[in-house]
Write a protein that binds this DNA or RNA. Structure first.
Lengths: 251, 251
DNA sequence: AATTGTGAACGTTTTCACAGCA
DNA sequence: TGCTGTGAAAACGTTCACAATT
């Protein structure tokens, strides 16, 4: 290891304490590696090389190795990585060795789906509290959890040790909910509402913005249309229905 | 303008045709500016300065100006940007002056919510086709649209001029669906399934991965815990419940 | 007087290329 | 021999600071 002193890393001694040193961009990929390693383990593999893991994750192998080097990886030169050990190490790094209690605020259309979504990495993220303001929703059970009124956020988050909040309210309600969560000690928030949340800098906010995602794709559609009109070659082949038809499924 | 020759930009003449030249990271922010400009316009504003718009979007003002310069902006020095003109220009850049027909594949838990989600930027993205394999779902109507069988993807996407596909199937089904969409001429895909899709390079794929988002937050929770144990100062204030309580809402 | 547009500095992330090790 | 781990270089993105312009 030895990490050549990351220039800014939050504050001087954060680095000294062995914290940080992992670029944000790498953290997102570590989560992806972890998932794919789980699948490889299920298939009975015991070791994997950086080239193989890079292949299934769509990441450049050198980048992958650098990412893994940040967590002080124990690869074996000439062989690869021992999968089970790497999984353990990734889980520790990503904080998945502690359970993270998640609170979800807003149980409307999207929120309801999130409450029932099982794709949250198998285990590790029990949705522990549900909140809404709608009297028709408060009191009902979803997946065995009762929906509470938003005003109960402070007590219930404290009682249940909530560490992560998810906001799936309509836009106008989101900032108020954010303030409540922050006031209750929640320091990490995933925001699905189409607004920019204001919060103190020690609060980590991530945003999932479906409208923005679609607009980015629309931009690429427009680019392609323009390119085609002008007979310009973009990144890939020109056109002509390449690949397709790999594996039969879904009759 | 004049753009100092972006070094790689897909291919030589793509830049020559006036395409690209806009960094991917900027495109995502342009979509955000557009939304906030819409809100400002509703409130009756006619012009906005880069500082004001930066304030409400949480973006650094210089970055914002650079982003806008990519679209050949018509700001007025000493005054700011004329909101309606800027909106028109952003819509053109983002391809929102053409309607984009969207197909959604997978109408289970999450997909059902997406089909009914109205937050998709007001207008511009009519969900035009729904698909699933489940016989209990095929044939039902959601928001006035009938759910078709996945095997009909090629005909229906062609008939309805689908330009954007959204995949919200279980993981194992996603690659097959992707192949079908690509084979039907769809070149832009938004993937909610927890797998890495393989597709030819001319296909633009974006991924929304809820499990990964949560794991990134879990990493930050773990970091904070460690930092607190070690008495280390991270990026923001140490702690002590800063801000909070801005606007009263949500009784 | 105020604010844009942008060259240049800076910081971060990616990629290369190869030394070091099993 | 094959693959990891990592310095160094390149590419990319952000921020600064100020000349240009209304």
């Amino acid at each position: 290891m030895s990490v050549t002193k990351p220039p800014q890393a939050g504050s001087e001694d954060a680095a000294a304490a062995g914290l940080r040193a992992i670029p944000e961009a790498s953290v997102a990929r570590l989560a992806l590696y972890l998932r794919m390693l789980g699948e490889l383990a299920e298939q009975g593999a015991e070791t994997v090389s950086s080239d193989e893991l890079a292949g299934v994750t769509g990441v450049n192998p050198a980048k992958l190795r650098k990412d893994l080097s940040y967590i002080g990886s124990y690869g074996i030169r000439g062989v690869g990585y021992e999968i089970s050990a790497l999984i353990r190490q990734l889980e520790r790094t990503l904080g998945l060795d502690h359970l993270q209690a998640v609170a979800l605020v807003g149980v409307g259309n999207l929120g309801h789906a999130l409450a029932g979504y099982t794709g949250f990495g198998g285990r590790g993220f029990p949705v522990t509290a549900l909140f809404d303001v709608d009297p028709d929703l408060v009191g009902i059970h979803i997946n065995g959890i009762i929906v509470e009124h938003v005003r109960s956020i402070p007590q219930i988050c404290a009682e249940r040790g909530v560490t992560i909040g998810m906001i799936a309210t309509p836009g106008p309600a989101a900032q108020g909910v954010c303030d409540l969560l922050v006031g209750s000690g929640v320091r990490c928030i995933l925001n699905f509402a189409p607004v920019v949340l204001q919060a103190p800098p020690e609060v980590e906010i991530r945003k999932v913005d479906l409208a923005v995602e679609l607009q980015i794709l629309a931009f690429h559609v427009a680019r392609r249309r323009l390119a085609q009109q002008n007979g310009v070659v973009l990144d890939g082949q020109v056109n002509g229905h390449a690949t397709n038809g790999s594996g039969g499924m879904l009759t």
